[in-house]
Design a protein around this nucleic acid. Sequence first.
DNA 1: CTCATATTCCACAGATCTATGGATAACAGA
DNA 2: TCTGTTATCCATAGATCTGTGGAATATGAG
Lengths: 243, 243
Amino acid sequence: MEYETSADGRADLYEQLARIGKVVVHPKRIELLELLCQAERSVEALAAATGLKLSTASAHLQVMRQGRLVETRREGARVYYRAAGEEVCRFVTALGDLGRARLAEVDQIMRAIGAGSDSAERVTRAELLERARSGAVVVLDVRPAEEYAAGHIPGALSLPLEHLEARLGELDPGLEVVAYCRGPLCLLAPEAVATLRSRGLQARCLEDGLPEWRQAGLPVAAGTGTPSGGPGNARETRQGRPR
Amino acid sequence: MEYETSADGRADLYEQLARIGKVVVHPKRIELLELLCQAERSVEALAAATGLKLSTASAHLQVMRQGRLVETRREGARVYYRAAGEEVCRFVTALGDLGRARLAEVDQIMRAIGAGSDSAERVTRAELLERARSGAVVVLDVRPAEEYAAGHIPGALSLPLEHLEARLGELDPGLEVVAYCRGPLCLLAPEAVATLRSRGLQARCLEDGLPEWRQAGLPVAAGTGTPSGGPGNARETRQGRPR
DNA sequence: CTCATATTCCACAGATCTATGGATAACAGA
DNA sequence: TCTGTTATCCATAGATCTGTGGAATATGAG
């Protein structure tokens, strides 16, 4: 009946959704969002990680905040940004999936960079869970330590890629290594696996990163405690349940 | 090692993903995408449905095509656009979900327009499947006939909202009606339910629309055959499986 | 209260996006 | 071949977006 007002309302509706679209229209904002799905960070850290000037990074973060995809927390003079909820990470994951599915260029770039989907069959989550039960595998988190602290696969060992060569000795050469990082578009784990293999170790990548693990409803541990410190050292959190 | 080239590659990667973001940065393009997730359409039909001039609609569709989210098919002098695969619809669904979850404005608008999430408890897919088995329910597809033809819930009756009042007599007053439309942001089913209730019928909305039904891995039928024509009249297709 | 640090705000120039009318191209039918 | 229909292409003017340096704010330490 009131088609005129209905039409207006609907236009508003799509305008609102476009606020979200606005966040992912700029490459750097996608990059920022992906970082924030790993762990919260200060503006300075985000600017450094993405190679943006501080004021530019701040401006991008404002846009992201207007789209309600990020929230902030103040700690002293510092402001920490974080993804505004699990749905946001799910959306970023969906964007990446769509890119890999539809944009041949994405696959080409991945291959050129060295993370070609063919280079090594990845371990599925189910397979990892099964093998972890039998204990014949080391799970390696090769992301920066802060990201490990913000959340990691229970039992995983934190060994940031940058320290991998120096700390190779910590790994039992008799066990296969399964490395994971930020997700399918992240290069940390593929690089780690390449390094490990060149040293004669058995190593493979997990099929994707921590966000997907969390989104699958699997348990996530937080804190810096070393897994060898025994259970209870790290706070374990079970969120949601598998869909 | 080659951090310089790696960095370049990664920048390219996010630029590629931003091509997808570019599609959903404009309200009208989101609207177009949602329409295309229901059924393919000609440029003219899309322009009419969204209130755009033909040349403007065509320009938007070119942007969408560059982002590889739509594909075309030529039939005579006419060009039909369609969503480029199920992943695209999944992405649009994720966008809508994120909007409803994060943007209070979206909920406000929905309520103002009359599709308030409170107005009537919706029927879940599981509940519908169960009740359909016992036969005590009529499933009503209130979208335009072309969209029904392109895909609908098996056994559903096509009764476009615009013809609802005229064809009320076709409904058995003794059965509860479950109406569905394009999705959670669509108003067709809520309006249909309001009309039916004002006529004294028992009616509720399905929790969401056909795209979500399809994405849940449930069977979808195609064609215009009336369900009363018996099984085999409509081509039934099972795609994927429930996640 | 003053200084140093971490962010945000502001103004501006250059780049990109949008809508639009008219020209051009593809196609079906007579 | 000529004509009407449908869609794309093009040039353009107005709007919006980006990056930047420097000013303004907020907070904690002296």
